[in-house]
Lab assay of single mutants.
Amino acid sequence: KRYRAVYDYSAADEDEVSFQDGDTIVNVQQIDDGWMYGTVERTGDTGMLPANYVEAI
C-alpha cells in the first residue's frame, strides 16, 4: 500500500521515521490503531510512523 504524508513528522524515537508533508510512504503495514510501518520513498528511511499523519493514495 502507498500513503501520502499530510503533515510533517519528526521521529521521536530511533525506530520511527521522519517525513514531510507530501512525501510518499511505501510498503506500509498497519501495526495497531495508531501506528504503521513503512518506507519514506524520498529518503529511503524505514520505520514506524503515526497513522493519523498519512492518507491512502
Rank of each mutant, 00 (worst) to 15 (best):
T46G: 04
Q30R: 13
A51Q: 07
T39N: 03
S10H: 13
D21Q: 15
G44Y: 04
G22N: 06
Y3P: 03
R42Y: 03
Y7Q: 15
Y53W: 07
Q20G: 06
N52A: 14
Y7V: 11
W35A: 01
Q29P: 00
I57C: 10
R42K: 08
Y37F: 13
N27G: 09
G22T: 05
Q29I: 15
R4F: 06
V28T: 07
N52T: 11
F19C: 03
A11L: 03
T43A: 01
T43V: 02
M36E: 02
T43D: 02
N52I: 13
S10F: 13
S18L: 01
W35K: 06
M48Q: 06
D21T: 15
T46R: 12
D33V: 09
R4T: 08
D15P: 06
T24G: 04
D8V: 06
V6F: 08
Q20W: 10
E55I: 14
R42H: 06
E55L: 09
G44H: 05
G34I: 14
D13E: 12
T24P: 04
D23A: 01
E14K: 12
V17S: 02
D32C: 14
Y37T: 09
Y53C: 11
E41N: 04
T24V: 15
Q30Y: 14
E16W: 06
M36Y: 14
E41S: 07
Y53P: 02
Y9W: 05
E16G: 10
F19E: 00
D45V: 10
D8Q: 09
A56T: 09
G44P: 01
V54Q: 00
E16P: 00
I57M: 11
A5I: 01
G47C: 02
Q30S: 11
G22E: 03
D33T: 09
N27T: 06
V26W: 07
M36D: 03
S18E: 03
T39K: 08
G38T: 00
V26D: 05
I57S: 07
Y7L: 14
V6Q: 08
T39L: 05
A12C: 14
D8P: 13
Q30C: 14
N52Y: 10
A11N: 04
K1S: 11
Q20I: 13
F19W: 00
Q29H: 14
R2Y: 08
G47A: 02
V28I: 09
E55G: 04
T39M: 08
V17Y: 00
I57R: 05
I57K: 05
Y9M: 01
I31N: 06
T24Y: 15
T43G: 03
E14Q: 12
G22S: 05
I25N: 00
V40H: 03
D33K: 09
V17A: 05
D13R: 15
K1F: 07
G44C: 08
G34F: 15
F19N: 00
A51G: 08
M48D: 02
G34T: 14
G34V: 13
Y53K: 10
T46D: 04
Y3L: 06
E55V: 14
W35P: 04
D23W: 06
M36C: 07
K1N: 12
V54H: 01
Q29Y: 13
R2C: 12
Y3V: 08
I31K: 09
Q20C: 14
F19A: 01
E55N: 07
A56R: 09
Y9L: 01
D32V: 12
D32E: 10
Q30N: 10
E55H: 08
D13S: 15
F19I: 06
F19H: 00
G47T: 00
D23C: 03
D13N: 15
R4P: 03
R42W: 04
T46N: 06
S18C: 04
Q29L: 13
K1G: 11
T24W: 14
N27E: 09
N27K: 08
Q20L: 14
I31D: 05
Y37I: 13
L49N: 00
P50F: 04
V26L: 11
A56K: 10
V28L: 07
Y9C: 04
R42D: 04
T24F: 14
T39I: 05
N52F: 11
M48G: 04
Y9T: 02
Q20F: 13
G34Q: 14
V54N: 01
N27A: 10
V6E: 04
V26K: 08
Y7G: 13
F19Y: 00
Q20T: 10
W35D: 03
T46W: 07
F19Q: 00
D32N: 14
A5C: 08
Q29K: 13
P50Q: 06
D23V: 02
A11E: 03
G22H: 04
V26A: 08
V26T: 10
T43L: 01
Q30G: 08
M48C: 12
A5T: 05
N27L: 13
L49R: 01
Q29A: 10
T39G: 01
V17N: 00
V54P: 01
S10V: 15
T46P: 03
Q20H: 12
D23R: 03
A51Y: 07
V28F: 04
G44Q: 07
T43K: 03
N27Q: 09
G47S: 00
M48W: 15
P50C: 09
S10G: 07
D13A: 14
S10L: 13
G47R: 00
D23M: 03
L49S: 00
D15S: 15
M48E: 03
D8S: 14
T43I: 01
E55P: 02
D23K: 02
G34D: 15
V40R: 00
S10A: 12
K1D: 11
Q20Y: 12
E16N: 05
I25M: 06
D45W: 05
T46S: 13
Y9R: 06
D8N: 11
V28R: 02
D8Y: 07
N52H: 13
D45M: 13
V54D: 01
E41W: 06
G22W: 04
L49G: 00
G47K: 00
F19M: 06
T46I: 08
G47E: 01
Y7S: 14
Y3Q: 04
I31R: 11
I31G: 07
T24C: 12
T24Q: 08
G38K: 00
D23I: 01
T43S: 07
F19G: 01
Y7M: 15
V54T: 05
Y7N: 13
R42I: 06
T24K: 06
T24I: 15
D8K: 08
A11D: 02
F19D: 00
Y7R: 15
V54F: 07
E16A: 07
Y9E: 02
A56G: 08
S18P: 03
Y9G: 01
W35H: 05
D15T: 15
G34A: 13
V40Y: 00
E14H: 11
V28A: 10
P50T: 02
Y53G: 08
A5E: 04
Y37S: 08
G22K: 05
E16C: 11
R42A: 06
V54G: 01
Y9A: 02
N52Q: 13
I57L: 11
W35C: 05
G22L: 03
T46K: 10
V6H: 07
V28D: 01
T43E: 02
D21P: 11
D21H: 15
Q30E: 12
Q29W: 13
D13C: 15
T39D: 03
I25E: 00
V17I: 11
A12Y: 09
E41V: 11
D32Q: 11
T24D: 07
Y3D: 04
A51V: 11
R2A: 08
E41P: 01
V17H: 00
D15E: 11
E55M: 10
D33W: 09
A11K: 08
L49C: 03
Q20P: 00
V54I: 11
G44W: 05
N52L: 10
D32P: 06
D8I: 05
E14W: 11
V17R: 01
M48T: 07
V17D: 00
K1W: 07
M48K: 15
Y3T: 04
R4H: 07
N27S: 08
Y37Q: 08
D8R: 07
G34Y: 15
D33F: 10
Y7K: 15
G38L: 01
R42L: 04
N27I: 13
P50G: 03
A5K: 02
V40L: 03
T46Y: 08
G47V: 01
T39P: 02
M36F: 14
L49K: 00
